[in-house]
Design a protein around this nucleic acid. Structure first.
Length: 958
RNA sequence: GCCGAAGUGGCGGAACUGGUAGACGCGCUGGAUUCAAAAUCCAGUUCCUUCGGGAGUGCGGGUUCGAUUCCCGCCUUCGGUACCA
């Protein structure tokens, strides 16, 4: 028998299906272990070689934990709502459900070829009504809860209503948006609508006029994490800030817990840093400044209340609610003009342009509550409406931006911190001594902050405050392909939850996916659905993708439960995710939302742990090589002219005269190497693919290919063209035509070799370009393992002879190293360890069952198909997945002697063998007498001899 | 700018807690087998060298008998973030 992956792999895949090998059941006396991959969106592009990296890594872990005696939950499903399916529907008229299902079938076929040990009976699909029924239920739960600051958890809204009934709003503990205070009797006499409006300010899922990111091209609002550099993350369309009434999720209520929770989870430090950054906690004080001749006060947030004596002016955001009322008549025109200017500035402009200083004076003044000084009030776009209170006290002596502003508008500057003892300190650093600050003078900055807060609280002008950068998240999209928000409005426009019995509230059938009504979901196109009965108007917005993916890991625990998100027994058994593998791109989106939803469910007593994911491993992106062919911008006699990069250089053609056209990498010769090029064959494929170039000329050092005649005219005796492209490492994407499909690699080398190779190319977290340079080596290793069982004549050489000590040593080194490697997620070294063991056993001619049987088990997480085959050859009639990971026995690794490296002054000069337990003193006593060492120390003074038992010897000479 | 990660042969990458730098694989060189090739197998492969040695883990210092590993200061690359008060 020979090792032929294309024969054994399909066989075992079928075996796993026929035998339900990976089916997991809860009732078990084994400890649980939950291994989860991030939820994929089934895009039409399918998998590329980057996706399996995480899937294979987690699969290896899951298989290993099974062998270690754990009951492992390892599911997979689809985050199947989303924009691409809807865009496809708009273009092609295909219902998103249909195209999504088609994509899922393709995805599944690709995943199946990787030999992953998923329990497919638990598959979930977010677009399935039986699934989104519970997403909607959770939305309603958010809607019907508020966050209680005193209890520090979510509480039913009924508790708050009861409180209002008895006490009015006095000292209420709801985390809420602003509303006017009221007494209990005022509350009772309010209209239903008035009460509803106040309650809406407190709900965890709430509707409010807020500034949102509106993306015209996508026809929807986006949350902050979906906007990057002022444009939509998906598609790169412009986004503008708009006031709109929107459903929001009060994630800010959980800001502190989301921050604290990071302490207890095992995520990479960079991921934690990204989340901390995004939450953006800063501690300081809120200070109220009375506006002169005006009843209003301006509240500012500052982290440096110590610098209050250095405040020389105030700046408020152009969008600040007080701007209009405080502006003096003389300044009205200037303020209007400035506000108009700000309105023309896109998010992108503001990001790009950080240097210019702009602003306008309101004509109003306020009073510094501590120094009683009179301060002019300005507006400027450098103060953001959405952070803190949207207003600052400007301290040009202590803040770089304030200083720039003061200089530009010629405002006074007062130094309040003496940093002369800290030459390296920045003006923002909290070091130095206070000056020009009356009662704070002479204090160190940190002490002065404390004292200033004390003074402010004494005088009632301010209080200690913590501010977060995190914003409440928009949870509504004006799109079709998402969960309908389960809300209806009555005639008074009061929002009500759709009764539980009516869930799932299914998406209406529509035939036109183009939004007809401005800023509304295409769902609104179906008026019968929107108005199911008189006096009832349904919400037409749908939920964003992160809704369904914020809790899917719980559904896997009990995927078909009709009575809840999962049975309480299942949740109590599986608890939380022990290992979560996925990309770091979800750091500020999915991972933050999922943690928040989980905390909410914890508050409700449904889940037993606060954090959903104990350990998170981010796999790095597998990059592709992008191949560009140079095209001259000016046509040659009316024909497109492609030219070799080398030739282009030689001719001295400037970069400005050429455009780079990405070429599908399948047209390349020697793709993945430094010498990649295109031959005549490639030109032919290229013009067939892009018929608009069928008249082109292709020029390279070897000659010229005329696409019109398909004739290659060589310069000399060349037989083929050799057009060198520009190769760049970048994203693997359809756009660059450089996607490598795992199916093709599997077809050529087999699934096991592919799995092992993906692991072998480097640490899982690291980004690396795809190439197949080393895959032959992995395949060779698998063949050699096979070769331990069968000789070159295909005769079985497996036997029951006693293995040698060296054989056992190789085996146990392997057991130890692979176990450790998997646990620390260094799957790359595990593959090396397998190669080392294989090579050793091969040179030692070991085909002993006593060694090969445990070896097969160790191999099985990495190369499951081959391992099953070998396991059968070993005489088993059960799956190798039911075996136990072999116990490591250290006694096999014990050596009788050690080869000590001997260094003279740190340079290795000789090697000396000693018995393992030779006392240190004895070595020290005799080491100098060896000839091999004598020659290095002759005539020199011995200063010291260092002997580290079992490690090394170092002799220090003068 | 700030935060985070990383920088090791021709290439991908190893190296436990400070103890033989370059494991393992690719590539390359030579050899065996073959009519020949592929495949396979064996040997070699950090660089320089006057063959005695010398240098060497981004650069410059430091601690140490000994530093890829610890400390200080830089440089570069990648990721995050961007007037956050």
């Amino acid at each position: 028998m020979r090792y032929i992956p294309s024969e054994i792999e399909p066989k075992w895949r079928q075996y796993w299906i026929d035998n339900d090998t990976y089916k997991t059941i809860e009732s078990s006396d084994k400890p649980k272990f939950y291994v989860l991959d991030m939820f994929p969106y089934p895009s039409g592009a399918g998998l590329h070689v980057g996706h399996p990296l995480g899937y294979v890594a987690s699969d290896i872990y899951a298989r290993f934990m099974r062998l270690q005696g754990y009951n492992v939950l390892h599911p997979m499903g689809y985050d199947s709502f989303g924009l691409p399916a809807e865009e496809y529907a708009q273009k092609m008229g295909v219902h998103p459900a249909a195209s999504t299902d088609k994509n899922i079938i393709q995805y599944r076929a690709q995943l199946d070829k990787l030999g992953l040990s998923f329990d497919w009976s638990r598959q979930v699909k977010t677009s399935d009504p039986s699934y989104y029924k519970w997403t909607q239920k959770l939305f309603i739960d958010f809607f019907e809860h508020y966050y209680d600051v005193k209890e520090d958890k979510a509480m039913p809204l009924s508790n708050l209503i009861e409180y209002f009934d008895q006490n009015g709003s006095l000292d209420h503990s709801a985390f809420c948006s602003d509303f006017e205070d009221f007494t209990a009797s005022e509350w009772k006499s309010m209209s239903k609508k008035e009460q509803a409006d106040i309650l809406m300010c407190c709900r965890l899922a709430f509707r409010q006029y807020r500034t949102v990111n509106w993306c015209e091209a996508l026809g929807t609002v986006l949350s902050n994490d979906e906007v990057k550099d002022g444009v939509s993350e998906r598609g790169g369309h412009p986004v503008r800030q708009m006031k709109m009434e929107q459903w929001m999720l009060r994630i800010t209520a959980y800001a502190e817990r989301l921050l604290q929770g990071l302490e207890e989870v095992d995520f990479s430090s960079s991921l934690k840093a990204i989340q901390r950054n995004w939450i953006g906690k800063s501690e300081g004080a809120n200070i109220r400044f009375a506006v002169e001749n005006h009843s209003d006060e301006i509240e500012v947030f500052t982290t440096r209340p110590d610098t209050i004596y250095g405040t020389t002016f105030m700046v408020i955001a152009p969008e600040h609610p007080l701007v209009e009322s405080i502006t003096s008549n003389e300044q009205k025109a200037a303020i209007e003009e400035y506000k108009n200017y700000v309105a023309t500035r896109s998010e992108r402009d503001r990001i790009a342009d950080v240097d210019s200083v702009t602003g306008a004076f309101t004509g109003a003044y306020c009073i510094n509550p501590i120094s009683r000084e009179r301060l002019p009030i300005w507006i400027s776009e450098y103060v953001l409406a959405g952070y803190g209170t949207g207003a600052i006290m400007a301290v040009p002596g202590g803040d770089a931006r304030d200083l720039k502003f003061a200089k530009h508008f010629d405002l006074p500057i007062v130094q309040v911190v003496d940093q002369s003892d800290h030459p390296d300190a920045d003006m923002g650093d909290k070091v130095g001594l206070m000056i020009n600050s009356k009662e704070l003078d002479g204090l160190k900055v940190k002490a002065a902050i404390k004292k200033a807060i004390y003074l402010l609280q004494e005088s009632g002008a301010g209080k200690k405050t913590t501010s977060y950068r995190l914003h409440d998240a928009s949870i509504a999209r004006q799109r079709y392909w998402g969960e309908p928000i389960p809300i209806w409005y009555d005639d008074e426009n009061i929002a009500h939850a759709v009764p539980f019995e009516e869930l799932p509230l299914e998406l209406p059938e529509i035939d036109d996916f183009n939004p007809k009504f401005s800023m509304k979901s295409p769902v609104a196109n179906n008026q019968e659905w929107v108005h199911p009965s008189p006096g009832v108007r349904r919400e037409t917005d749908t939920m964003p993708g992160n809704a369904g993916s914020s809790w899917y890991f719980l559904r896997y625990m009990d995927p078909n439960n009709p009575d809840g998100i999962a049975s309480q027994d299942a949740i109590n058994y599986w608890q939380d995710v022990d290992l979560y593998v996925g990309g770091a791109e979800h750091a500020t989106g999915h991972l933050l939302y999922a943690r928040m939803w989980h905390m909410f469910l914890y508050d409700k007593g449904i889940v037993p742990t606060q954090e959903p994911f104990k350990r998170l491993v981010n796999q790095g992106m597998i990059q592709g090589v992008i191949e560009y062919m140079y095209l001259l911008k000016d046509k040659t006699e009316g024909r497109s002219h492609f030219i070799c990069t080398k030739h282009c250089e030689a001719k001295g053609i400037s970069k400005e005269d050429i455009s780079a056209i990405p070429v599908p990498v399948s047209f390349m010769e020697a793709y993945g190497t430094d010498e990649s090029y295109i031959s005549v064959n490639g030109f032919k494929q290229f013009i067939a693919w892009m018929p608009s170039y069928k008249d082109s000329i292709f020029e390279c050092g070897k000659g010229i290919f005329d696409a019109k005649t398909e004739v290659f005219t060589p310069h000399d005796d060349a037989t083929d063209a050799y057009l060198i492209t520009r190769s760049e490492i970048g994203k693997m994407s359809k756009r660059y035509h450089n996607v490598i499909n795992p199916d093709d690699v599997v077809a050529e080398y087999g699934s096991d070799a592919f799995r092992m190779y993906e692991m072998f190319i480097g640490p899982i977290e690291q980004a690396k370009p795809w190439n197949t340079n080393g895959i032959e080596g992995v395949l060779r290793c698998l063949r050699r393992i096979w070769g331990l069982f069968y000789d070159n004549n295909e005769q079985l050489i497996l036997n029951d002879s006693k293995p040698s000590k060296d054989d056992m040593k190789a085996l146990h080194t392997l057991i130890r190293d692979v176990k450790k490697g998997i646990e620390t997620f260094s799957h790359n070294t595990c593959v090396s360890d397998i190669m080392i063991a294989t090579n050793a056993l091969r040179t030692q001619k070991c085909s002993s069952r006593e060694v090969l049987e445990p070896l097969t088990v160790v191999l099985s997480p990495f190369a499951p198909h081959l391992a099953e085959e070998l396991w059968q050859i070993l005489g088993h009639n059960t799956s190798v997945t039911q075996a136990s990971f072999p116990e490591f026995d250290e006694s096999w690794l014990k050596e009788d002697s050690v080869t000590y490296p001997v260094s003279i002054n740190g340079k290795r000069r000789a090697e000396i063998q000693y018995p393992i337990d030779k006392p240190k003193a004895e070595i020290e006593a005799e080491i100098l007498s060896f000839d091999s060492i004598q020659k290095y120390i002759e005539g020199k003074e011995i200063k010291r001899i260092i002997v580290v038992p079992k490690r090394m010897i170092n002799i220090v000479v003068a």
